[in-house]
């Protein structure tokens, strides 16, 4: 119970800070929108091609935007040494990780929800029955990369050049999540059902693995 209260306190604090500044959200949205536009110029895709490369473009936009958000997540904690202040309180370290992770997940999902209609619009897709499975894949993929991302953001926040360090650390590690997410998005857009459930199951498995490993390792990140 105390654990959940602490987790919720951290989570609400992050939501409030983001609501005040809107720094992470605006950066994420604008950047991801630019990715969609640039890729459109780069490939000038026809309908066939959109179905082939669209999923990749979508997840490049999502993960790049996600990295921007994750980078912000520990910037507010570094300012004035707030993270040390939180560590002075008798709170569970795992609650810090899960609270920060939930906040990041929340921001990234909101950004994705806004971006998805633009993606449909720019690439002239018409989605109907595909929407529920697509949302599920977005949720699972985002859980996966924000879970590791929150851990690695806490690490890279300690370095010079943290904006560069986070993607360099994160992208090789989340290769499995990207494969799973892009493949299942592709299957959904192409109305193929074969193999989809196993891809989704694989994504869910990664989420569990990454979330558990990151929770266990987070304690060591905070300790000096």
């Amino acid at each position: 119970m105390r654990f959940l209260q602490q987790l919720f306190t951290i989570f609400m604090k992050d939501l409030r800070l983001e609501w005040r500044t809107r720094e992470a959200m605006s950066a994420m949205l604008l950047f991801a929108l630019l990715v969609l536009v640039i890729f459109n110029f780069a490939f000038n895709p026809d309908r066939e091609m959109v179905l082939a490369i669209g999923p990749g473009i979508l997840w490049v936009a999502f993960t790049f935007a996600g990295v921007l958000g994750l980078n912000r997540a520990f910037a507010s904690e570094q300012e004035n040494g707030c993270l040390s202040g939180v560590l002075l309180t008798p709170m569970d370290r795992g609650a810090i990780y899960l609270g920060k992770w939930l906040a990041n997940l929340c921001f990234t999902l909101i950004a994705e929800a806004i971006l998805l209609p633009f993606f449909v619009l720019f690439f002239n897709l018409s989605l109907t029955t595909e929407i529920p499975p697509l949302l599920l894949v977005c949720l699972l993929g985002t859980i996966g990369f924000t879970a590791v991302g929150t851990l690695l953001a806490a690490i890279s926040a300690n370095t010079r050049l943290r904006e560069v360090m986070l993607p360099v650390l994160l992208f090789p590690i989340i290769v499995p999540v990207i494969i799973g997410a892009v493949q299942s998005t592709g299957l959904i857009l192409n109305h193929e059902t074969e193999g989809l459930t196993s891809f989704i199951r694989m994504l869910a498995l990664y989420d569990v693995i990454f979330l558990v490993t990151s929770t266990l390792l987070f304690d060591f990140v905070l300790e000096e």
């Binding site: 604090k13 800070l17 005040r20 507010s76 300012e79 004035n80 707030c82 040390s84 202040g85 002075l88």
Partner: peptide
């Protein structure tokens, strides 16, 4: 604890 770091969130 009081230190030279203030432990305060600027936007709260």
């Amino acid at each position: 604890v009081v230190s030279h770091e203030l432990f305060l969130y600027g936007d709260l």
